Simulated scan of single mutants.
Amino acid sequence: MNKKMTTFMQDNIEEILVEWQELMKDDSDERFFQVMSQDVITKTSREFAELMISNLFEGENDYDNRLKEFTNKVVRFGWSISFVMSAINHFAQVVYEMLEKNKTINEQNLKEYVMIFTNWISPMRDGILETYAKTWERTVQLQRMALQELSASLIPVFDKISVMPLVGTIDTERAKLIIENLLEGVVKHRAEVVLLDITGVPVVDTMVAHHIIQAADAVRLVGAKCMLVGIRPEIAQTIVTLGINLKDFTTTSTLQRGVEQALAWTNRKIVEVE
């Protein structure tokens, strides 16, 4: 029966895909079919169908390789795990209804086909869940490492003046890295003034402010001054609304003004030369 069902799906793949896509488009939380081009939708849908069919007849190693390759792709497309599970269920539903419609499934063999569908779908769900979890975890880890490398370096811009540009969300783990790099950078570059540039930080809440205050306190303990720059109007409004106390900070709206103030603190200034 496995061979018969496989042959049926291969012979009717176009009709199966059309009905499957219609069911997927009706899902209220799906975005893939709205944001992707038709070429990408067609290609990815066909790959998904081939993956579903291959589970019935391919060897374990071949299927596992195909599963990993497909899962990597849908993670990049942003498919949620619930969307993947819905895709599997809808595909099985379309196949079952078509087999029932053409009388391949009837009262005499219903129990056998139910067992075939169970043995077909359940291992696939388990395999995709496991592969998806590993792929997503690896992707998140790589993104975290890239973000840490990008946004936690102290950069000397003038003698005695250094800048640390902060990019992205600041959590507890990143805050520890920021403080470590700050202290090492202050000593290494002999900085007297450090500018923390939060232009690239999308949201400043109480927790983020707490981490920034900790970083500034650590800088002062090693004998340097700390300034907070890049405070956009919406960030300023949030800070005031939350009642975050930044009175011990010198703050400016732009990095340029911060550098001018830092130069003044070190008895220097920028002048125009004719």
Rank of each mutant, 00 (worst) to 15 (best):
E47H: 13
E100P: 01
A49V: 04
K73S: 12
E50C: 14
L56I: 13
L147H: 05
D26T: 04
E30T: 08
N102F: 05
E22N: 15
K134L: 11
F33H: 07
I128C: 11
G78W: 01
E137F: 06
E30P: 01
K73M: 10
L23I: 03
S37K: 13
T42F: 07
K101H: 12
N55F: 02
F48H: 05
K111I: 07
L67F: 04
Q108V: 03
V95C: 06
D39T: 11
N72K: 05
V35K: 15
L99R: 08
M98I: 01
A146K: 14
N89H: 07
T118A: 07
H90W: 03
P123H: 07
S54Y: 08
F77K: 02
E50N: 15
L110D: 01
D39R: 15
M52R: 13
N119R: 14
Y63R: 05
R144A: 09
W79L: 05
E22T: 11
Q93H: 07
Q38E: 15
A146P: 06
Q34E: 15
D126A: 15
L99W: 07
I41T: 06
E69Q: 03
M115F: 09
A133K: 14
E30S: 08
F33S: 00
L129Q: 14
Q108E: 12
K134N: 10
N109E: 02
E100H: 05
L23C: 07
F83E: 09
R31F: 11
E50R: 12
